[in-house]
Amino acid sequence: MKSVIFIPARYTSSRYPGKPLVDLRGATGVSKPLIQRSWEAACAVQGVDSVHVLTDDDRIAEAARGFGASVLMTSDKARNGTERCAEGVAQLAEEPDVVVNLQGDAPLTPPWFVEALIAAMADPAVQMATPVLLCDAETLANFVHDRREGRVGGTTAVMRGDGTAIYFSKEVLPYVGSLQDPPEVWHHVGCYAYRPDALRRYAAWDEGPLERAEGLEQLRFLENGVPVTCVPVEAPGRVFWELNNPVDVERIEAVLKKEGIA
């Protein structure tokens, strides 16, 4: 299958304006902007034909071209990364079989997460897939702490037995409370793989009430009856975290240092 990775990035953000250009210090003390670290994570994925940064902002485009990335300029009308991917695929000279959306705020995404998604798309019945990671104690504690402090941290996924999604939420689902033996909580990783046709259909649909309330773009597929395949992945000994709030900079830098990522 021919596959491409898109990295959607926007400058405006209600929670963290200018986030793609925030510097993150690696293990060697060298700082790189978030968008560069996300691009480097995408370039580590095996078997991908090309990687492109998608943005409507000249500051992000200039920074991305400065470290050697291919940039596709999209409109400022795109409300989320999936809509931006639909615009991006229309600009490609040759339509790929699979489009991967590696969100620009997830620089700790291991390459095997994306490789597992692409492998799942070998099933022609799968229209859209996304990775999920069983929360370890540290990640779950971070989720619960953020919600108690009024911050939105990561996203959780609730699935059927066949691995298709029932729901995604920025709340910690299922509810764990103060249980000594809480139920499994699955962390939704901000990465998607789509068929190009699924992207075109998505862009034609209106934003639904659940997507609007949660601020989660993947809910538009569920609201329109398109199954979302959740692909369980593992990151043994590695803490996966996205950059959603300023407090996450320190968390991500700690992982970069621990993992020896320059």
Results as ranks from 00 to 15, higher is better:
residue 4 V to K: 07
residue 4 V to R: 02
residue 6 F to A: 05
residue 9 A to Y: 07
residue 10 R to T: 11
residue 12 T to M: 12
residue 17 P to M: 08
residue 18 G to L: 05
residue 19 K to H: 12
residue 21 L to A: 05
residue 23 D to T: 09
residue 24 L to Q: 12
residue 26 G to C: 12
residue 28 T to H: 08
residue 29 G to K: 06
residue 30 V to L: 12
residue 33 P to E: 08
residue 34 L to W: 03
residue 36 Q to D: 05
residue 39 W to H: 15
residue 40 E to W: 13
residue 45 V to Q: 03
residue 46 Q to M: 13
residue 46 Q to S: 15
residue 47 G to F: 12
residue 49 D to H: 13
residue 50 S to Q: 15
residue 52 H to G: 00
residue 53 V to Y: 04
residue 54 L to Y: 00
residue 57 D to S: 07
residue 58 D to T: 10
residue 58 D to R: 08
residue 59 R to V: 08
residue 67 F to L: 09
residue 67 F to T: 12
residue 68 G to I: 05
residue 69 A to N: 05
residue 69 A to W: 02
residue 70 S to T: 13
residue 70 S to W: 06
residue 72 L to K: 03
residue 74 T to C: 11
residue 74 T to R: 05
residue 77 K to Y: 10
residue 80 N to Q: 01
residue 80 N to P: 11
residue 81 G to S: 13
residue 81 G to N: 11
residue 81 G to F: 00
residue 84 R to A: 15
residue 84 R to S: 15
residue 87 E to H: 02
residue 89 V to D: 03
residue 90 A to R: 09
residue 91 Q to L: 14
residue 101 N to T: 01
residue 103 Q to H: 10
residue 104 G to E: 09
residue 107 P to N: 11
residue 108 L to C: 09
residue 110 P to R: 12
residue 110 P to Q: 09
residue 112 W to M: 14
residue 115 E to C: 14
residue 116 A to M: 02
residue 120 A to G: 10
residue 127 Q to T: 03
residue 130 T to I: 00
residue 130 T to K: 01
residue 132 V to T: 11
residue 133 L to F: 05
residue 137 A to N: 06
residue 138 E to A: 15
residue 140 L to V: 13
residue 140 L to C: 11
residue 141 A to Y: 02
residue 146 D to I: 04
residue 148 R to T: 07
residue 150 G to E: 03
residue 151 R to K: 14
residue 152 V to G: 05
residue 153 G to I: 03
residue 155 T to E: 00
residue 156 T to K: 04
residue 159 M to N: 09
residue 160 R to F: 14
residue 161 G to W: 00
residue 161 G to R: 06
residue 162 D to T: 08
residue 164 T to M: 05
residue 165 A to Q: 06
residue 166 I to T: 07
residue 168 F to W: 11
residue 168 F to A: 08
residue 170 K to W: 03
residue 172 V to E: 01
residue 176 V to A: 08
residue 176 V to Y: 01
residue 177 G to E: 11
residue 179 L to Q: 14
residue 179 L to S: 12
residue 181 D to M: 08
residue 188 H to G: 11
residue 189 V to W: 10
residue 189 V to M: 15
residue 189 V to R: 07
residue 190 G to C: 09
residue 193 A to R: 01
residue 194 Y to M: 11
residue 194 Y to I: 00
residue 194 Y to E: 03
residue 198 A to E: 06
residue 203 A to Q: 04
residue 205 W to I: 01
residue 205 W to D: 00
residue 209 P to R: 05
residue 210 L to W: 12
residue 214 E to H: 02
residue 214 E to V: 10
residue 214 E to G: 04
residue 219 L to P: 06
residue 220 R to T: 14
residue 222 L to H: 06
residue 222 L to I: 08
residue 225 G to T: 02
residue 232 P to C: 09
residue 232 P to T: 01
residue 235 A to L: 02
residue 236 P to D: 13
residue 238 R to G: 04
residue 239 V to A: 08
residue 239 V to K: 01
residue 240 F to W: 14
residue 241 W to F: 10
residue 242 E to Q: 13
residue 243 L to D: 00
residue 244 N to V: 15
residue 245 N to Q: 14
residue 247 V to G: 06
residue 247 V to T: 11
residue 249 V to E: 04
residue 250 E to I: 13
residue 253 E to T: 13
residue 254 A to I: 10
residue 255 V to D: 05
residue 258 K to W: 02
residue 258 K to I: 10
residue 259 E to L: 15
residue 261 I to T: 10
residue 261 I to Q: 06
